[in-house]
Amino acid sequence: MLILKYLFYIFVFPGFLFCFFAGLILAGIDRKIVARMQKRIGPPILQPFYDFFKLMGKETIIPNSAAKRTFIAAPVAGLISLVTISLFIPIFKFSAFNAVADVIVIIYLLTIPAVSLIIGGSSSGSPYAGVGISREMVSIVSYELPLIIALLAVGKKAGMAVNDGMVTFSLSKIVEYQSLKGPMLFHWSMIPAFLAMLFVIPCEVGSLPFDIAEAEVEICEGPLVEYSGFPLGIYKLNYALKIFIFSSLFVTLFLSGNGTGIILFDAAIQYVLCIIVVILSVSLIRAVTARLRVEQMLKFYWTYPTALSILSLILVWLGL
């Protein structure tokens, strides 16, 4: 019986199917809103589904200079780690495997899809991919720093009240803190961290102005240049899932709380909040900016969001 419950969690909710639909619809909404902001009509909201199923049916061509097994295994590894993360993010006091929902595990598991992009790109054997993956790696390095500091700030703040003074890294404890004292956003010391993470989202997700690795005009789509067909479909799915999962994590960290207690309504509220977050941080900025160069991105991330996060950390340590 327990196995069936776990299987349900893994494959249906909040696992594979739920993330599948939620992520692809979110990606579709994002594209539609960007288009509307740019005075176009834009593709229908279900467009990512059509793309995915079209790509599933296409032929996969593997170039001769690629390492075949890694070429196919890399996107699947990214997909698996994303589904694993989705099992750990609590949705307003409901979480599938709540004993292990630890923020540092999630951060590490979040680097796995980016690394799978890198490994997939590099195993394709093309020099364009080589340049693309180095830029992707630099973008990982640049966004990890503010992300880590913001998480430490959030963890310390929740831990001071709930975990008798020590830091907590457990997401369920953070949700518990928010259900006691209101969403994390409403505390003064958390606002800089909120802003810093809002900056981190576009880079993590891979949208302008920080999409130096992916949809690149200069290097022909970077790491994905040799992909086609089924693995490419999985990569696009990973992209959509990552948007959903990361914004869901963000909502849990900063905007969570008590919820209504009914799982469906909770999931719906979380989803609506995800949409709002994505519109704010991803679509809005994507519609109006251009792409930054890689060293500009590094310099940006290591000054402004880092300073904001450190400010938040100092405020939390001082007890505010």
């Binding site: 200079s65 390492a67 890694t70 680097t111 690394v115 890198i118 490994i119 590099s122 195993s123 394709s124 054997g125 020099p127 080589g130 993956i133 180095s134 790696m137 630099v138 990982i140 390095v141 990890e144 720093l145 880590i148």
Partner: peptide, 21 residues
């Protein structure tokens, strides 16, 4: 941060030794 930079450096090595042309 050092952990992330370690990852960066190993990606560099993997790409330039094992993958690629």
């Amino acid at each position: 941060l050092v952990s992330v930079l370690t990852l960066a450096s190993f990606i560099k090595v993997t790409q330039s030794v094992f993958f690629g042309q």
